[in-house]
Write a protein that binds this DNA or RNA. Structure first.
Lengths: 235, 235
DNA sequence: CAGTGGTCTAGACCACCAT
DNA sequence: TGGTGGTCTAGACCACTGC
């Protein structure tokens, strides 16, 4: 047998769960019971159970046992990169303005800030072979020690701009992608005569307590947008 | 100290990686060395290292050691559900046709099938408050024992239709989302007078060897589309 | 109280890698 | 050949849950 024992235990229990042997929220045999069943020790059983838990098949409660979780088969993983999400890659970007402003309603809501807080607003246009394809707005509450050097800002991703305030690994990000009619501001940028459907990608960076610490809005022209994703199943 | 030792080891090494103590592809101290450093055993060290590996900070090669991986902070998780991706939920769907066809070029390419294989083509229209909002086309290579009962088809998701041929857990899915001009067929469905930009969501179901076993195309009207995603960081 | 999962020890043997 | 990660054993003590 080439297959490690913990792998066999993993497969066996996973297949039992999938085939519906256990009801949802019903409990698995205990670690010691499983160890006896597979003629091994708790450590090896735990190896399999830990993996099943991290993959979303199980959850455990100390002192009680392991319970079956309803695994969803509709979670997809995709990569989002401000530049790579476009069909062709961005080959130029132009900084339009860097200002310190007071929040309007949209900003106040998305950054959960009172009207008197100062916010750094950075606006850029992204180009693909000299054609405007996206409008980038980043909004970050102003704090001292923040770099507002234009040359730096142009190559800095949103999460990097706040990473000296908050360690990278503790940051959370949220994305919302949808289609909206272009605003007055966007119409000016893209030289639209009349409102037009555009992609809006809102990115919110949150700290460990889910408080927003940065917000950005990317407006893409249609026909320059593509996402590819794969189902997240194992690991 | 309340914090378990393996947690402390995990944090310590993670922070060292993030702070850039190790160069990319450079190797970590060996398990035994780390065990000595933290005055513990290999088992406890491995607990921390396994977690760091599954979170994408490290990878290991048997006989060589642990290596630093460049963790990307741009992977997002999102849920995709044919019905829930619309701003308002689908409240009606109408089956247009179920046919057995021979593949055209697009189908032959996406399902990697020769021109003489038979394919089941299922076409539906999805409604939100009596308005057509999406056109659903599913294509599955015909195999015996396949249910082609109209009442069943209407409530069956793509991956369920092939799940008696292939176990659910071994299936992989791939998504591609972009914007295209409506085809002749789509124009007829939505009563367009002229081509118009629409969302195209292509879903491919693959078996364990990445061979396609089903393919679907969902065409959504603009303004009825929304994705929300969260950054995948830990676990 | 006995049973559970959570943590940890101090060993062991193996296959693989570099020298 | 010695070092590495991969697998596994046979114990241990703890905090917690249910009775």
């Amino acid at each position: 047998m080439n297959e490690p024992l913990y792998e066999k235990i993993y497969r066996t229990i996973r297949d039992e769960i999938i085939s519906g042997k256990y009801r949802r929220d019903s409990t698995l045999p205990s670690e010691s019971a499983l160890a006896a069943i597979f003629s091994t020790t708790r450590v090896t059983v735990r190896n399999a159970l830990t993996r099943l838990s991290s993959e979303g098949y199980l959850y455990s409660i100390a002192g009680k046992g392991y319970f079956i979780k309803n695994k969803k088969f509709n979670k997809y993983l995709f990569e989002f990169d401000e530049k790579k999400i476009l069909n062709s890659n961005i080959d130029k970007s132009k900084l339009i303005s860097v200002e310190i402003i007071k929040p309007d309603v949209e900003l106040s809501y998305n950054l959960r800030l009172p009207g008197n807080r100062r916010i750094v607003a950075i606006k850029r246009i992204l180009y693909v072979s000299d054609k405007k394809v996206a409008y980038d707005e980043k909004y970050i509450p102003y704090f001292s020690g923040m770099p507002i050097i234009e040359s730096e800002i142009n190559v800095t991703a949103l999460h990097e701009m706040v990473s000296n305030k908050e360690p990278l690994y503790s940051m959370k990000k949220k994305l919302a992608i949808n289609v909206v009619k272009s605003s007055e501001e966007v119409m000016k940028i893209f030289d639209f005569n009349q409102p037009q459907s555009v992609f809006k990608v809102e990115q919110t960076i949150l700290d460990e307590d889910n408080e927003p610490i940065a917000w950005s809005k990317l407006t893409y022209l249609m026909d320059y947008f593509k996402i590819e994703a794969r189902l997240q199943l194992n690991k």
